[in-house]
Design a protein around this nucleic acid. Sequence first.
DNA 1: ACCACCATTGCATATATTGCAACACACACC
DNA 2: GGTGTGTGTTGCAATATATGCAATGGTGGT
Lengths: 291, 291
Amino acid sequence: MEYKDLRVFLSVVAAQNLNRAGQQLHMSASTLSRRIARMEEEAGALLFKRDPGALTLTPAGELFRQHAEQTLAAWESLRSAVNADVSDMEGSLTLYCSVTASYSFLADLLTRFRERYPKVDLRVHTGDAAESIPRAESGEADVVIAARPEQLPAGLTFRAMASSPLLFIAPRVTGTVPELSRAEIRWNQVPMVLSESGLARSRVDQWFAAQGLKPSIYAQVSGNEAIVSMVALGVGVGVVPELVLKNSPLLGRVRVLSVQPELEPFAIGLCAQTQRISDPVLQALWQTAVF
Amino acid sequence: MEYKDLRVFLSVVAAQNLNRAGQQLHMSASTLSRRIARMEEEAGALLFKRDPGALTLTPAGELFRQHAEQTLAAWESLRSAVNADVSDMEGSLTLYCSVTASYSFLADLLTRFRERYPKVDLRVHTGDAAESIPRAESGEADVVIAARPEQLPAGLTFRAMASSPLLFIAPRVTGTVPELSRAEIRWNQVPMVLSESGLARSRVDQWFAAQGLKPSIYAQVSGNEAIVSMVALGVGVGVVPELVLKNSPLLGRVRVLSVQPELEPFAIGLCAQTQRISDPVLQALWQTAVF
DNA sequence: ACCACCATTGCATATATTGCAACACACACC
DNA sequence: GGTGTGTGTTGCAATATATGCAATGGTGGT
């Protein structure tokens, strides 16, 4: 039994559903299923009733919930006490991330960080994902949430938190992009909507180059969210991380194309200047992200 | 942070020394060192002062100790409550193990089992290690602590708890076995003291056979402890599990020979009839051994 | 100065965890 | 009834993690 299990358990209790809980936790449902099975074996009793439609707690599960809450509270309290001298740090921390990353990671991260270090002055900036790494490099931001670039610039350190596949998306309404109706798609004939720059763009360029093709670019835009919008309008095919798609209100208006070979997934995580990691405030955030 | 870490921590606190703690826990000192390092990182503070001679708790470590004790107590309490209907089981359990295994494993196992299921009538028999598997097979014992045989008899299930190397031992006083003084030992000239039967015996027979040699047997005895005694007397070379040697009062009278190839280590664990494992009392012991 | 003991760390290996995909089941809707 | 979508579970291969061994550096004792 580990503390992460306790958090997982509480998330599942709240979500009453493995898939929803899995999305919040960035884990697959199968992982959750097996973690719960293991907890039940260790506890010696079933914790959930598998009613169709919702997971509800058994009496034993209710006791376990109390145990989990108390133990985690005690643990947080211990951490605070032990780091008392640190927990009233009064530094400031400037964090930059894309709008989309803010939906998936920021809330979680900042909530825990705020609990632990309430006096740190947090400054959060959101913007284009492509800006993340440069802002870390220049020092404009102390830390950024970003996808790991293929070549991490010297002097920067990266710590993964999750990964997200890079997907080809097309308008859900068929026919607006005629080339897609062919059995063998001629990719150099497909109008593409791509970022002007950034990791996703270079991965796409590599993908085309590997097949000896040149993409036919219909539009170059800034920001993954704009790509989803334009694809939903029917002008062409775009490439975005799954993370962006999942959070987009236009999710229903596009469909995912399965292509071969698949693009390498994004690794999402924290990135900061190596020399600054020893800074107590940054250390604190680093720890918060890991445990 | 996992619950096993908490137990490890408390053991180290009690032992004030990684090697001693490691022997009790059947783990290497390096493992303990790294586990503690990880705990300290997660807690955000050093838990032990590395004074030469003894590991002592820092103030943070003292707080952590309280947290560990409380959490483990709460966990045991939860397990008891959840298994309330089971915890006043009134069955009986007959356990057989070798004298040596009783030193290393039995105390630990029975202490925890007794805490959890105080009403179970425990009957413990100790004797020759070679008897263990037959007693499980015949049903004379519900469960045995034994080394895993090469061919586990059908109908028996084994669960590993630890492993112990199989060692060649000779009298510490050199000269009593002349052959050992030669640069290249002619093993068929070495007087051996071996078990009459059992796993250790068959492993030794295999070892000789693999080199096309026949052992020169000085004495066949029953019980590993007797082997240590006879070797200490100077009559020849014996083969015993490290576990036996570590617990022997004659440890100082013998020395370990390094031989090539090494004998395959013993896997020590619980063994019972597969069909009986569903028995609640046996289930309970099984769980106790694992977590 | 040497030896014994201790904690720590690099490295190769063994173990455990994870995600994917396939499955089995239940329910709702046509 | 069939079919479609949702659920939780499980086999399997890839990966991440933990472990033991052996070597290192440091500290006392003799």
